[in-house]
């Protein structure tokens, strides 16, 4: 991917929780169709960053340029409307309703009868069935409430949901944590397929092999700062691990001068 105008540019994003500085000036770009693996230890600030991009949290300072426009999303609804889909680390499913209702949460298919929007259950069911079958996910019945499904099945629903809705940018916060081997493989393929359509993908993972399998670039966050931003072909798992633990640090991939400290 060439870097004309990036799909998303983060410029010096900070976020404090009281005295805790969760993010201390994060800047990097994501191009269209690019898969960026966001790496870092527990508590590094990855989830916080994802929530800021997706409108769930406000940044304390910093700028965000999305699709050529300076924006900060005040709610997930705004981010969604702009084309940002998010799969959160703590899943976002309503376990008291069925798979179909979750899939279409907030975007139900309706038909107006005398001005009253009426849910089109059949159409929604068919769409979900198609999406789930395409992804090779096995769920006993789409009409069972999500509370009766396994952790992996729940995660699969969320993954299929984002693939179905597409958009421009997809944020995945540890999407494979509960998935089996086969489902993870499918999930990784899904990410590649999505990126091939020109959608930008940010995927958070702790598993180096996964990052190297899908990502075009690795961005390492350490203690709220970017501790490394490298192209996959220019690095190795060992080097990335050293960035995560703070033994090595390499600057932004697209810049000529890597900033070295540590």
């Amino acid at each position: 991917m060439t870097e004309q105008t990036p799909l998303l540019r983060l410029d010096n994003i900070t976020r404090n929780f009281g005295a805790i500085e969760a993010l201390r000036g994060v800047s990097f770009d994501i191009a269209r169709g690019e898969v960026v693996a966001l790496l870092g230890d527990n508590g590094a600030g990855k989830s916080t960053l994802v929530k800021i991009i997706s409108g769930g949290l406000e940044a304390s300072s910093g700028r965000m340029i999305f699709d050529g426009e300076e924006r900060m999303f005040n709610s997930p609804a705004e981010a969604k409307a702009a084309g940002i889909e998010t799969v959160y680390q703590d899943l976002s499913l309503c376990t008291n309703v069925d798979v179909v209702a979750n899939f279409f949460m907030g975007r139900e298919i309706v038909k107006r009868c005398f001005g009253i929007p009426v849910l089109q259950e059949k159409a929604m069911y068919d769409a979900v069935e198609k999406a789930i079958t395409n992804a090779g996910t096995r769920i006993p019945s789409l009409r069972t409430n999500v509370e009766h499904l396994s952790g992996g099945q729940r995660q699969a629903i969320e993954l299929n949901r984002f693939v179905h809705w597409g958009g421009k940018l997809v944020l995945l916060d540890e999407p494979f944590a509960a998935l089996g081997v086969e489902q993870t493989r499918r999930g990784l393929e899904m990410i590649k397929r999505v990126a091939a359509q020109g959608i930008g993908v940010v995927v958070i993972t702790h598993i180096m092999a996964q990052a190297f399998q899908v990502a075009d670039r690795m961005v390492v966050i350490r203690q709220g700062k970017v501790a490394g931003d490298v192209r996959r072909e220019d690095t190795s798992p060992d080097e990335v691990i050293r960035m995560i633990t703070g033994e090595a640090s390499i600057g932004r991939a697209q810049e000529k001068k890597p900033q070295l400290h540590a």
């Binding site: 997706s54 769930g56 709610s75 997930p76 609804a77 969604k80 409307a81 998010t86 959160y88 899943l91 976002s92 499913l93 309503c94 376990t95 008291n96 309703v97 209702a101 949460m105 907030g106 975007r107 139900e108 309706v110 009253i116 929007p117 009426v118 849910l119």
Partner: peptide, 25 residues
């Protein structure tokens, strides 16, 4: 049962955070 309003009310009762993230007001 049949309108988005009812569906959303039910889902809010189930998981308000998830509905908020899904863009439901």
């Amino acid at each position: 049962r049949k309108t988005p309003f009812g569906r959303h009310i039910t889902m809010i009762g189930g998981n308000a955070v998830a509905t908020f993230r899904a863009g439901i007001r």
